Simulated scan of single mutants.
Amino acid sequence: MTKVQIFDPAMCCSTGVCGPSVDPELTRIASAIFQLGKKGYTIDRYNLANDPGAFVENNKVNKLLHEKGTDCLPVVILNGEIVKEASYPTTEELAKWYSLEETELVEKKPLTPLQFIQIDNK
């Protein structure tokens, strides 16, 4: 079974929707992880601010942080091996790792916009 771990830099949340500006890359990866979760897959995610022990306990990540500092974050580990530094996996990479189509990891938008109906309450 595929095991993916993402070691995020220190941040207040994993979605990228907090703070003065939205980071589209954080939004994309959060959405892809959410879609994987709906399919029963799990990605372990660790935030340096909230889970510092995970960074210390993982020898590969700990070594990388000592060598390169926090600029190497996020670090992505696939089945125990570091496969990415300083960037999140692409949707294409996640799909490949989990043997899925890329379209399965993109949130479906409604085909037609929602229309509001005004109800007259007399």
Rank of each mutant, 00 (worst) to 15 (best):
M1E: 08
T2G: 07
V4T: 11
D8G: 01
P9Q: 08
M11F: 09
C12L: 12
C13Q: 07
C13V: 00
G16L: 01
C18P: 09
V22E: 00
E25S: 12
T27L: 06
R28A: 05
I29T: 00
A30E: 12
S31V: 05
A32E: 04
I33L: 07
I33P: 03
F34W: 13
G37P: 04
Y41P: 03
T42G: 04
D44W: 05
Y46K: 00
L48M: 13
A49G: 02
N50V: 04
D51H: 06
A54K: 12
A54N: 00
V56Y: 13
E57G: 05
N59V: 12
K60N: 09
K60G: 04
K60L: 13
K60Y: 08
N62E: 14
K63L: 13
K63W: 14
L65A: 01
G69C: 05
G69R: 10
C72F: 02
C72Q: 04
L73R: 07
P74Q: 12
V75S: 02
V76P: 00
V76A: 07
V76Y: 10
L78P: 05
N79E: 11
N79S: 14
G80W: 14
I82V: 11
V83P: 00
V83T: 09
K84S: 12
K84E: 09
K84Y: 13
E85D: 14
E85M: 03
S87L: 13
S87R: 12
S87C: 14
E92F: 10
E93W: 04
Y98G: 03
E102H: 11
E102I: 04
T103Q: 13
T103E: 14
T103M: 10
E104L: 06
V106E: 10
E107D: 14
K108D: 14
K108W: 03
K108T: 11
K109G: 06
K109W: 10
T112D: 06
P113S: 05
F116E: 15
Q118S: 15
Q118H: 15
D120C: 08
